[in-house]
Structure formats: C-alpha cells, structure tokens
Design a protein around this nucleic acid. Structure first.
Lengths: 215, 215
DNA sequence: TTCCTTGGGGAGTGCCACTATCCAAGCATC
DNA sequence: GATGCTTGGATAGTGGCACTCCCCAAGGAA
C-alpha cells in the first residue's frame, strides 16, 4: 500500500502522515525506489492508534512518540514497559512544594493510601505522576475552601480500585503479550474518556432522577 | 485590594490578570479613579476558580468564560444552569455519522443505556456531549479491533453511576444554592482529574499486586 | 515527450495563552 | 514641586503546537 492508500484507509491526510513520519511517530515504509515506499497493515494499525491517542485521548504528539517508544522497547519487562508508557502520559504541572495547600493535600492523600492499605502505591508517592496529579487537584479544592479529605476521597478510591480490577481482568482475556500491552495502553488512554463520559452521563441521569428536568 | 495584591495573593502575574480582564473572565474592579481599581475577596476567589479550571481541568480560556457565564446567569433554574455549564466543557470533536464504526458504537451505547435503565440519559442521546464522547471512544476501540460492547461497558457504567451518587450526595451537604452550583462545577471539572489520578494509582496498585514490581 | 504522482523537506499558517512594552494619569515622598 | 512608582488600558509580540502548503527531483504511464 502506498502513501495515498494509507491516507484514504485511515482518513488522515497525506500531509499529516508525512508530518508523523518526520516526527518519528510512524516508522518509514519499505523503500521500493527513490520515489515510492510500501506501507502495510501494521502501519495502518499504528496510524489508527496514533489518531485515537491524539483525538480521543488529547495526547500531544511528542508524548505519543514517547509512549510508543516504550511500547516498542522489547528490552524492558512488561510491567516496566507499561508503567513507562503510562507515566509518559500528560500530567498536571509540577506543584509548588512550598505552597501550604499542596503540603496539606500531600498529608491527606498519604493518609488516604494508608487507610486504603495501598502499600504498593504508597511506595511510589515520590515519583508517580498520578500521585502528583491527585495532590494538585486536592490542593485546588482546598484553596477554594472546599474540604476534600481522606474521608470523602476513600469511597471514590474504592470505586476506582474496582474499575482497575475490571481493566486488568479485561486485559488478561487477551492471549498475546503484544495485544495485552497495546490493550493496556489503549485502556489507559481511551478508557479514561470512556469513564469520563459514563460519569457525566450518570450525573445527568442521577440529577434528573433527583431534581427532574427543571426546577 | 489593588491589582498587585490580587496578583500576589493568587500567584498569577498582573499581565495575566489583565489578560483575563480583557477576555471577560474576570469582572473589572470597582473604579476609584482613572488609574486605580479596587478588587475584593470575590475577585480572588473567582481568579482561583479560573486557575483551577485552566491548570487542573485543562479547560480553554474561551470555555472558562462560557462556563462562568452560565454559573452567573441567575435567570436560569439550577438544573439548567448546571447542565449548561457542564455541556460547555470541552468535548471530543463531532463524529462522522457515516462512519461504520461510529454507527456500530451508537448501537452499542444505546443498548447499554436500555440495559441499565437510564431512561433520562436515553432521552438526551441526540444532544448530550457526554453521549457523543462515549460513542467516539467506543468507535475508536472497535476501529482497532478491540471489542468494547455493552457487556464490557455495563460494569464500568455501574461504578460510574455510584460515583455520580457520591457527587450529588456531597453537593447536597452544602446549604446555599450558590455554593452548590460552584461545588457542582468544581465537581465536574476538578473531580475528573481526581478520579483519573485515583484510577491510575489503583491500576499501579493492582498491577503490582498481581505481577510484582518486575516480571 | 508530456504529464501525473511519489516521497522528502522547508517554510508558512492559525490558534492559543500568555507576555512585553508603551502610555498618560495619579499618588506619595522628599 | 520634582521625582519616582504604580495604576489601568491598549497594542504588539512570543513560543508552542499541530498541522498544511508548496516546491522539488525522480519515476512511471500515456
């Protein structure tokens, strides 16, 4: 398949595909001669994955490259590859450690992990981007005068733990390592929009049940 | 309080505050004379809300303006104000209705709502941005060859419904309408990063429990 | 021979969230 | 009353990002 066909089957313009090639998101096709290159189904698949990450997951191009680099790195064991890919995903900016709200949020989140017995996550507090994101968000709540301590967070964390169990159960239904890795990346990137959309739909449903369509 | 103090207490530069004033995100201070304006605690609070939306929620400036416009519109009943504010939040681009994957995803999501008995959400399918987001994400999964039908979505939806119940229960602990509205907006915007972070932390915890730190 | 298409590459575009600079007016201090 | 600072207002500029346009020389087709 040549560039034009790859473009047509993926719905991505040739100019954009060339851009992805330049940026190293997509491996070059098999060069037939100076003016022709041949692409295969794997290129199409990878291109669709890239589009899903960018359009649905709002992942920046540079981050997509980093994530795919980890996915393709056969030298790493699976758990590390997955973690590396996940941690490359966009995160909130580094919080100001001197900020009193950030410090208070840190205490609360740490207490939450103790309360939940998440021993493994606890070991990652200094490095995990997810932990940092959580601290920043809780600090933002506090700054605006709304409490969002461990007692309120715990039931949410419990529900999120159950979704994580579902995620991994689903992943384990795939037989091959390659599929599992890709599914896990997709799960991390596409599942979140799915959860977010379900959450908003559920909010609409529940608030209509409680308050009706108007008030 | 003057501009400089507002800047210092919020941690936002005066240049940026001026930009927000120009863009209409922040109402002008009380004009004392041609060269001085007085800001109050309400301005500081609003500014912090704006920063939380932009930095934690990644909401574009134009959207922040729209959301705040709905929040401040006293002419609308609460349920509508909330809905209007929520629906202004950034969403995935409009899906291509002719795309076969989008149509299949539409079927699946619709079947899911029937199965769950979400009658109210069902009525919103043609207009709700959350519904649209869900369809787009499910279509992206299918395009990559991973099934993500109603049978897999239902348990996630069940968990998301429970988080929505938590959201509304929390909201109802606030006595005043104004606080409830603001908390609900915050809940919509800041809660999602919180849920996302908890989800990723839970994934790290659970996958470490199953597979250990390396493999 | 003429024309079209190919891949490659550099430069340009449009949007966004600021950021920098300038200005005249005011107030505060010396 | 001169000096220096800050104020709000306005305009223009910056840097990043995700493309998008245009040109090129080489190859294949009519």
């Amino acid at each position: 398949m040549r560039l034009a066909e790859l473009s047509e089957r993926s719905g991505v313009s040739t100019a954009t595909i060339k851009y992805y090639l330049r940026e190293g998101l997509l491996t070059p096709g098999r060069q037939i001669n100076t003016t022709t290159a041949e692409y295969d189904e794997e290129h199409l698949r990878r291109l669709r994955l890239i589009r899903a990450m960018i359009q649905v997951g709002r992942v920046p191009v540079a981050t997509v490259k980093e994530v795919l680099g980890h996915v393709d790195d056969d030298s790493l064991p699976r758990a590390i590859r997955l973690g590396a890919a996940m941690w490359a995903l966009p995160q909130v900016p580094e919080p100001d450690q001197d900020d009193e709200y950030v410090q208070a949020a840190h205490q609360e989140v740490s207490a939450l992990l103790d309360q939940l017995g998440w021993e493994n996550a606890k070991q990652l507090t200094t490095i995990s981007p997810a932990y940092r994101s959580l601290v920043v968000a809780v600090a933002a709540f506090r700054r605006l005068g709304y409490g969002f301590g461990a007692e309120l967070l715990a039931p949410y964390a419990e529900l999120m733990h159950r979704t994580a169990v579902l995620d991994l159960d689903n992943m384990e239904t795939y037989p091959s390592q390659a599929e599992r890795i890709e599914f896990a990346i997709l799960g991390a990137i596409l599942n979140e929009p799915v959860l977010q959309a379900l959450h908003r739909l559920a909010q609409e449903e529940e608030s209509t049940r409680r308050y009706g369509f108007d008030e």
